[in-house]
């Protein structure tokens, strides 16, 4: 399978006054198209920092992240939003939906950010909701949706604009077991049918069963 993300000897150090915390220490990793990669590890092991660097939200202190062959380390801070917009879809633990927008509009936000054709905004956002079984909930506000429905809207939003990589941060943490399984199923299906790379951070054992590959992080270092 073709590599879409390459992490090469990446280290992230946080310095606050005299304190120096190595959040991620010399991690090298590859993510391939059509692959579901699960990153597991205890709290404080550096999972979120690693995900932030994969998603081009954080610059590594040293090492490099290559997205589709493009080196991010050499990029300026102001260039990163375009990379994120083009390559990544995000699924967050707390869903992070906009309460003032309907389910369809929450999806539409990303399409608008990506400069989608205005005439297709409504149709495509409802279509994406259809892919996660929520077409009939398109006009509902997040407050009127269940936790599982919210996460599926968030997933539809992550798929908006057809990004090659989905990054999911604890996508099942706020869901019951059955719903969590459904969401993980959606992520895997998306990876297989659309040939997308999916990186999941999770403590959920069910996620391990769904993933093609699992890596463990402890004290910022990778444990194979």
């Amino acid at each position: 399978m073709e590599k879409i993300v390459q992490i090469q000897d990446v280290t992230k150090v946080y310095e606050e006054g005299k304190n120096r915390v190595v959040a991620v220490d010399s991690v090298s990793l590859e993510v391939k198209k059509g692959e579901v990669l699960l990153v597991m590890g205890p709290s404080g092991s550096g999972k979120t920092t690693l995900l932030s660097m994969i998603g081009c939200i954080l610059h590594p202190t040293s090492g490099d992240v290559k997205v589709d062959g493009t080196s991010v380390a050499a990029m300026k801070e102001r260039e990163l939003p375009d990379i994120r917009k083009r390559y990544f879809g995000f699924v967050f633990q707390s869903f992070n939906l906009f309460p003032s927008l309907t389910a369809a509009e929450n999806v539409e936000v990303v399409l608008r950010l990506k400069g989608w054709d205005r005439a297709r905004l409504k149709k495509d956002s409802v279509g994406l909701l259809g892919r996660v079984g929520l077409e009939r909930r398109a006009g509902f506000y997040p407050r009127d949706l269940s936790g599982g429905e919210k996460q599926r809207v968030a997933f539809a939003r992550a798929m908006a604009g057809d990004p090659p990589i989905i990054l999911a941060d604890e996508p099942t943490a706020n869901l019951d077991s059955k719903t969590g399984k459904e969401v993980l199923g959606l992520l895997k299906e998306f990876s297989q049918t659309a040939g997308k790379a999916v990186v999941i951070i999770s403590h959920d054992p069910k996620a391990e069963a769904m993933a093609h590959r699992t890596v463990f992080l402890e004290d910022g270092r990778l444990k194979q």
Binding site: P81, I83, L113, K114
Partner: peptide
């Protein structure tokens, strides 16, 4: 602020 952060993460620029 969480929504602004989400927008930034999803690729919105400060200007947006």
């Amino acid at each position: 602020i969480q929504e602004f952060g989400t927008l930034k993460a999803m690729g919105a620029r400060n200007l947006d």
